[in-house]
Nucleic acid binder design. Structure first.
Length: 200
DNA sequence: GTGCTGATCGTCT
DNA sequence: GACGATCAGCACT
């Protein structure tokens, strides 16, 4: 059921970002399982991608997780408030990552609701990368954790989407990246209500 | 529905 | 010392 280590070693992070659409992502934090299937991702394509933290082979205490062998989580803090969950891919020394931007929740809705401090469950519960991390209980404490662990993993349950059901568009919030901001590295399931806002 | 803005701090210059 | 791979709340249409 769990995607094997080898799945994450592919050197084509854009292809993997597309392929992760429809895969099931789970966490087991404090003994409770929450998760659902991935409906939105973004690819960050190594040292040549101006939008990536690892652009220009920038190796710092923060980014070193991205340089690990594929199949681990890269979690960091953004805007001082939000934690973001990425899946590191490719071989060691090749800093590729897939940002998980939205999930269609299937298990642990009550736990997610509690973590998000919501009075009523709405699609915003796992819409956007900061929300996904918070709903699934992901924090920087699990930065670098293996996807073969029992804390965080991804399963293939045979759910697939045809190419005409998946949009490929420019990434969100990366205007500073110049030409690379235009690359169609964001993937999402058309019409899915959990996909985050810039939805055209 | 759309649009503006405050929150809040780790990270790199 | 500036700013970000964002979100929620509130004003307004």
């Amino acid at each position: 059921m769990k995607l094997p280590e080898s799945y994450y070693l592919d050197s084509d992070v854009v292809k993997l970002s597309r392929d992760l659409i429809g895969k099931y992502l789970f966490t087991r934090i404090d003994g409770v399982v929450t998760g659902g299937y991935i409906v939105e991702t973004e690819a960050y394509n190594g040292i040549i991608d101006k939008a990536s933290h690892a652009y220009g082979n920038r190796l710092t205490p923060r980014t070193q997780t991205m340089f690990m062998q594929g199949g681990v989580a890269y979690v960091y803090l953004c805007y001082g408030i939000h934690e973001m969950l990425n899946i590191v891919t490719s071989v060691e020394g090749q800093p590729h990552a897939v940002l998980i931007r939205a999930v269609n929740p299937t298990i642990g809705l009550d736990i997610m609701q509690y973590r998000r401090n919501m009075a009523v469950i709405k699609p915003t519960i796992t819409m956007g990368p900061g929300s996904v991390a918070k709903a699934l209980g992901v924090s920087r404490k699990i930065n670098g954790i293996s996807l073969q662990s029992d804390t965080l993993w991804i399963e293939d349950r045979g759910l697939t989407f045809a190419d005409d059901e998946v949009a490929a568009v420019p990434r969100v919030g990366v205007d500073y990246a110049g030409d690379d901001a235009l690359l169609p590295y964001r993937f999402y399931i058309k019409g899915n209500s959990y996909v985050s806002k810039p939805n055209k």
